[in-house]
Design a protein around this nucleic acid. Sequence first.
DNA 1: ATTGAATGAATGGGCATTCATTCACCCAAA
DNA 2: TTTGGGTGAATGAATGCCCATTCATTCAAT
Lengths: 205, 205
Amino acid sequence: MAEADRQRDSPKRERILQGALRAFAKKGFYNTRVSEIASEAGVADGTIYLYFKNKDDLLISLFEDRMEWVIERLTTELQAVEGGVLEKLRAFVGLHFQLAIENPDLAEFITVELRQSAKFVKEYENPKFADYLKILQFLIEEGQRGGELRTDLDSRLVSRALFGALDEVLLQLTLARTPPKDVTEETGQISRMIIDGLVHRDEHT
Amino acid sequence: MAEADRQRDSPKRERILQGALRAFAKKGFYNTRVSEIASEAGVADGTIYLYFKNKDDLLISLFEDRMEWVIERLTTELQAVEGGVLEKLRAFVGLHFQLAIENPDLAEFITVELRQSAKFVKEYENPKFADYLKILQFLIEEGQRGGELRTDLDSRLVSRALFGALDEVLLQLTLARTPPKDVTEETGQISRMIIDGLVHRDEHT
DNA sequence: ATTGAATGAATGGGCATTCATTCACCCAAA
DNA sequence: TTTGGGTGAATGAATGCCCATTCATTCAAT
């Protein structure tokens, strides 16, 4: 096949994706030269076009590939959580941050590039991001059915809001390159805020 | 002065900013040609360089200018709100959305471009965005001092999370160009979620 | 007539993409 | 075992487009 994407699993393809991730995280999509990606990946400029149709395609492929991976890890780890929906929600928050800390380039890439790219690279719809949101949404709905969560809030709205909250906090953490000293404390606070709200309550839950 | 920014208030300068806003909202910073901004503003390409040093400077000036305006409106309208901090929080959510709906181009520009631009245009720090966050932060702290809000959450963390939640929900609203049919319902849900949390409580608040 | 603002065609550099060439590997024939 | 040539991957210099920025010239106002 003379087509512009060789076998989906090829060490070279993966090297290119990795190089692109590093480069995009460091300088952003529009400020990254294809030749920089190539040298980061240790291949020739032209080689990239054997695996991807063009720069846009490389960006989108990177999204899909990495998001798929994130979704898979999140799903499995979430299934292993003992306890009710509240416990799972807390775990979700923790996992979201943990994944980001373990993969700083990926975190930076996703938090910073997701929006722009989603909108301007030839109207790409980003189905994987939708999948990610669905995990949250279903978790909320499970809790609503089970009686743990209030039912007067739209699950799609809530899941979006939650994602936004996590994402924004993560953005700061990521950009500041803060050493993750007290992440547990932060995720704890966020979970409490999400679950119990901001309002002050008398001493008894 | 041969300097590249004429009087800060000039109808022509404002026309350029307006043209840039429309263009950036529609196609994003990196996909917008300076000549497009010029024609959108009804000036010659070169004229833009009489008012702004270059394209980056135009972007940043646009941010500063519009954020300043937003902050001012938000501050005044918030001061006019009767009631305690909880009421003000609800008002904040409502105002955030209302401003966005009244200025869709501005909303799209800010939600989509803020992150990227902030990071990649010559390491610009975006002080105005920090100011915006501060409004929220001080509101939270006021509530904590007054006893209406719980004190075990860091006000900076909370304000970021809140902003993120609003921003993400707004992003969808903005991009989908959804007719704002039930915005009141949405803002109501968000306020309730923020203040009272997701957890189900027995019938008595 | 002088001054400063505005114009927009021309310039030049940057960069994605191409493609003629090289390279590495395999196998068939001698 | 050697050789040759066929195949597809990889290379990277060359191409050509695109567009931000400039500046010689024109215009308007006083």
